[in-house]
């Protein structure tokens, strides 16, 4: 029972930080209007490593919904992109982490996540707005951008996970990774 409440507390902390990061990221000037670094994904990956898929899913949905509420684009297209991309990227990250646990570090997982996020967004955008042929033109740009942003967030995630494992031990006694 105590473990369960600790887990709930941990999820709330992660969700809160993810929302704040999501909202703060809106103020970072971007070279392209639809580009995001996806720093909120850092928290999602940490949560995935420590607590598993379900808790990370809760964090993802809360991040997109509450974040959109704060930023003010709830139920707008960018909110739809954010939710669908977030869930899809989390699913892919969890799948890769489960099927090949020792091939990728958080950096690789983050790149996978960013890639899925952007490609799913592109697919939905093609369904909603643009014709299919135009979308094909954007493919290489999206792949290169998501590789770059995924690498940046991945490096940050890697550093955070390595430096704070003791804190997590205190917060969540039986978390899912051991430092190797």
């Amino acid at each position: 029972m105590q473990l369960r409440s600790r887990k709930i507390a941990a999820i709330s902390i992660f969700s809160a930080s993810a929302v704040i990061i999501y909202a703060a990221e809106t103020f970072i000037p971007k070279p392209l209007p639809w580009m995001r670094f996806g720093f909120g994904n850092i928290i999602v990956i940490i949560c995935l490593y420590l607590l598993g898929f379900r808790s990370a899913l809760v964090v993802t949905i809360l991040k997109s919904t509450l974040g959109a509420l704060i930023v003010g684009n709830l139920f707008s297209p960018s909110f739809i992109f954010s939710v669908s991309g977030g869930i899809a990227s989390l699913a892919v990250m969890a799948f890769i982490l489960k099927s090949v646990p020792r091939v990728f570090s958080p950096l690789g997982i983050s790149v996978w996540g960013a890639l899925t996020h952007n490609l799913v967004q592109l697919y939905i955008a093609s369904l909603l707005f643009i014709g299919r042929i135009e979308v094909l033109h954007l493919f290489p740009i999206f792949i290169i951008l998501s590789t770059i942003t995924g690498t940046i967030t991945g490096i940050i995630t890697l550093l955070i996970l390595r430096r704070t494992s003791k804190t997590y031990n205190f917060l969540i006694p039986n978390h899912q990774y051991t430092q190797s």
Binding site: Y49, P101, R102, V103, S105, L107, Y177
Partner: peptide
């Protein structure tokens, strides 16, 4: 479970 949190060649 053990997940690697070191940089892997796969990355």
């Amino acid at each position: 479970k053990t997940h690697s949190i070191r940089l892997c060649p796969g990355d």
